[in-house]
Every structure is written in structure tokens, then in C-alpha cells.
Write a protein that binds this DNA or RNA. Structure first.
Lengths: 265, 265
DNA sequence: AAGTGCGTTGCGCTAGTTGCAACAGATTTT
DNA sequence: AAAATCTGTTGCAACTAGCGCAACGCACTT
């Protein structure tokens, strides 16, 4: 009947779906957590299943329950584990650099990494003026993120083309048609250490981004600084040089080997 | 036979044991992760079991594998889950600690975060004595808030100076002239985990504040306890030590990195 | 070539998970 | 008060999925 989908324990998938729901209050301010029935309905699963899974998760500290409201939210152990990821270290090292950029340009500064075909924003430093949309922990397709061009800069052209031609989520397909423009941008990122991107997502502004290298000489992340106040192109490139220099300092802080910039593949 | 009345799914327990092993690279040298056999031996489990579990975990993004060394380490998804819900958790977890402080000192206790150049108070627990001014949801410039010193404690000195020199709203410009005093206070916050602030806003009392770290190793908030009844300075510092300890407990609940920060910029 | 350590996979057996339905509290409605 | 609804938990038989063993492929060393 149903295909056996290679390897994925069903229990794990269920547990992670639950955790994802509990993390999913990016929209409103549901700070109280969620109840069993609500979660079960949202996942299309049996109440009993969710109830038992949550109890197991609670016993392990992955979720916690308010004894009064009986609602669940994510638990201490998840946060403890998250602190041991290498992303946490990356964030810690990059934060001062991002703050400096945010202050210098009075624009939001982000640090993004590539996960599959998605760009995940690890940390966002808002500009001093206001508090903008929170991108932290959010993934967008690489083709639609400003930082995407920097993150793919050391890829082989053939693989980039393959990724660009992959189908996008419904309704978003037209924005990135210009494949040649992409290839040019990637070359620019390689040569100059930064690249300027136009608007691609409705609610994400144009941005200047720069790749960050790790100790192996691979691109592990990208700095991205948004441009809300449209200046002329020359100004954007002046920004780019500063951001590229910052990315180089950050790369050095991550233990990047003292290797010349332009000589990757 | 050992009857486990604990309803804990064995698969979940196994997965978490594995994650815990992968997290345990904080002790010695930073390894690049661990191999299947090493993990299996360390847990006293079958290799095959661990191999299959790790593949499932990898498919879900909970762990990542270096394609070259075939070693596993913790994955991006843990970090993403934690990041998306970090702020809600801050509010959740801090409430009991704030209540304890408010009861202990019979003073108002607050939880503040930094938003741009403003300090926003997320939670206020009033002391039992009387109704005070409600600060919840109120923003004040970082230079004028008692919690400001704690919130900036992990910033680079140059950034702090820049922020301090930024123009204030009309009519409020004179209060924070003492830049050096600020830098000293930040050092104190870093060294001792708390800092005592004098009166700065007319209607805001002096206060003792302490920085709170999150799972990324960044300061995400600050506990602030007001001092309405002026005692001697020694007493304020005694308060500070208690508040700093509370902030540490709160940070632990947020998954603060185990290695105490000391030597950042 | 044989030897070692590593990680993956095939397969019978058993144990753990599933889904239904009944149950028990907590609120709300009649 | 009783009834109606909501909530979340639990007992049970059917069944599926995870377990351990052993064999296998692979990369290095001897």
C-alpha cells in the first residue's frame, strides 16, 4: 500500500512534528503553549498518541507543562542541546561583528547558513532605529534569500544551476528566473567578497551579503545587511567593501586558514 | 524483571542519549564529532541500532554528518527550534525567578530586553507593598534604563561608546554624560554578574540588574530589581550577588552555554 | 593477501506502538 | 443540579516497527 520511505523512524518524526508545533508561535504571541487536543488536530493525529508522546517528551525534559493550564511548551533540554551546536558558537563569535555593521549602516545585520536548499538565519541584529521582522530560526529557499548568492559562491556552476532549477513552493516561481544574473553575482561574490542583491521576497528588503569561510576554506555562512533606504548603487558597493572586510575578520576569528581570497575553485 | 511503569518511548530515550553524547564535546578538545562505533560503545548499545537511529536523526536535521570523516555532530534543527521560541521562553521561565526576587527584597522585579537602542520591559512583578508604576511594555533609551548596563555587558567597547554618544530625545541629554562610569559599570557586570545603577530617569528608582544569557551564549535580557528604600551601598551589593545568582539560574534554564563567558570582546 | 576497524544491511522474533472506545475532570449550558 | 461539552488519560487486542545477531562492503594497516 504505502511506500516504505527508506529510513525514518515514525516515532521520531511524530515527536519532531510536535516540537515544531510548539515552536510555531512566530505568528501571534501565544506564549502560553498549546494543549493536547489542539496539537493533535493540527497534526491530524490521534489525541491518545499525542498525549503519550508528550508525556514521554516531558519525562525527558524536551517539553514542559504548565501544571495549571496543562499546556505544553518547549523544555529546558532542547535549549541545553541547542547551546552545544556549532551554530551556537558561530553566533557567539559573529555577534560583535554584526553589531558593528548594524551600528555603522543603521540597518539590520544577519548571519545566515545554508541548510539543504534553504537559507537559515541564525541571528539578526536589528538596526538601532526600530525593531523589524524577526528572521531568527526561519528558513527561506536559497533562491529567494539575499544571502543565498554568498552562500553558494564556492559551489560548482553546474550544481548551482541544478539548485536554481529546482521547483519552488507554489506561487513563488517567477521571481528568480534570471539564471545568468545569478551566475554573474556568484562570480562577483568570489572576486570581491561581497554581492548586492535586489528585492526578492516581498517583505525582505534588498541586501548586501558576504560569504564567511571556516578553517577548512569552505563557506560556512554569510553576513547579510539589508538596505531599506535605497541609496545609489555606488553607495551599496561602498557598503559591500566594508561588509566583505568584516566577513574576512570574522572568518579569521573562526580560524580560517590564511589563504588568499580569490583562489577558490 | 524490571517493570518500567514510566511510559517513555524507548526510541526517544535512545535518540536523546545519542544527542547527549554528541553534545558532550564541550569537555575536552573540540572534536569534529563522533563516529557510530564510538557512540555505540559509549552507550552500550548495538552499532546497528545507533547507525539506524543516526540516519533517521540526520534525515530530520537533528544531527549532521561530515561527509568526509563520516562523523556526526548536533544539527541545525535543534538550534532553529530553540531560536524561534527563545523570547517566549524567556518570559515563561523568568516569572518564578522574578517573583522570588520581588518577595525576597520587597521590591519590584523586572525582566528587560534590548530592542534597538531601547530597553523594553517585558515582565514586571510588583513588590507586595503597594502599586507602583507599571513598566511592562514600556521602552526607554538604553542609556537611561538601569538594566541597560547589564544588557550591553557583552558588547564591544567601541560599540557601546558609539551608542552612548548617539543623540537622545530632546530634553534628556545631560543625564548620561559620564561615559567612563559606564565602561566601568559594564566591566563590573561582566566580572561579577550584576551592576548597581543610580537614578537616571526622574521617576525610575535606582536599581540592581544582572544580565541573562541564552542558548546562543548571547545576553538576551536582564533582570532588574529597583531600590526604593535607600540603604547603604554594601547592602546593594549584597542584593547584587543574590540577583546575579538568580540570573545564572535563569540562564541555565535558557540553555546557556556551560562554559562561562569570560573572555569575549 | 590477510588482518583490523568502521559503518551498513538482511532477517526472524519479540516488544512496543497504534487506534478505538471508555473513562474521568473541568467548564459551560440548560 | 443535572446535562452537555470540552478537556486529557487509559485499557486492550491487533499489528507493525524496532531489536540483536551475524554477514557484508570498504578503507587502511600489517
Amino acid at each position: 500500500m504505502d511506500e516504505k520511505l527508506a529510513v525514518s523512524s515514525a516515532g521520531l518524526r511524530r515527536d519532531l512534528e510536535i516540537l515544531e508545533v510548539l515552536a510555531g508561535h512566530g505568528d501571534g504571541l501565544d506564549t502560553d503553549g498549546f494543549g493536547v487536543s489542539w496539537i493533535a488536530q493540527r497534526l491530524g493525529r490521534e489525541k491518545s498518541q499525542v498525549s503519550r508522546a508528550l508525556r514521554a517528551l516531558e519525562a525527558e525534559g524536551m517539553v514542559e507543562r504548565d501544571p495549571l493550564t496543562r499546556r505544553y511548551h518547549l523544555g529546558w533540554r532542547l535549549f541545553a542541546l541547542a547551546s552545544r551546536t556549532q551554530q551556537a558558537r558561530l553566533v557567539q563569535v559573529s555577534a560583535p561583528f554584526l553589531r558593528r555593521l548594524a551600528a555603522t549602516f543603521n540597518e539590520d545585520a544577519h548571519l545566515c547558513v545554508l541548510r539543504g536548499d534553504q537559507v537559515l538565519t541564525l541571528v539578526s541584529i536589528p538596526s538601532s532605529r526600530a525593531y523589524h521582522r524577526i528572521w531568527e530560526g526561519v528558513s527561506v529557499p536559497v533562491t529567494m534569500a539575499a544571502a543565498g548568492r554568498s552562500l553558494l559562491a564556492d559551489w560548482a556552476p553546474a550544481q548551482v544551476r541544478e539548485l536554481l532549477r529546482a521547483p519552488l513552493p507554489a506561487g513563488l516561481d517567477s521571481a528568480v528566473s534570471d539564471e545568468e544574473r545569478w551566475m554573474t553575482d556568484l562570480g562577483h561574490a568570489r572576486s570581491f567578497g561581497y554581492v548586492v542583491s535586489d528585492v526578492e521576497l516581498d517583505d525582505s528588503p534588498a541586501a548586501v551579503s558576504a560569504p564567511v569561510w571556516d578553517h577548512r576554506g569552505l563557506i560556512t555562512g554569510a553576513i547579510s545587511v539589508s538596505i531599506t533606504r535605497l541609496a545609489d548603487v555606488t553607495h551599496a558597493h561602498a557598503m559591500g567593501r566594508v561588509i566583505a572586510e568584516t566577513a574576512r575578520e570574522l572568518s579569521a576569528g573562526l580560524g580560517r586558514l590564511p589563504r588568499p581570497t580569490g583562489a577558490e575553485l
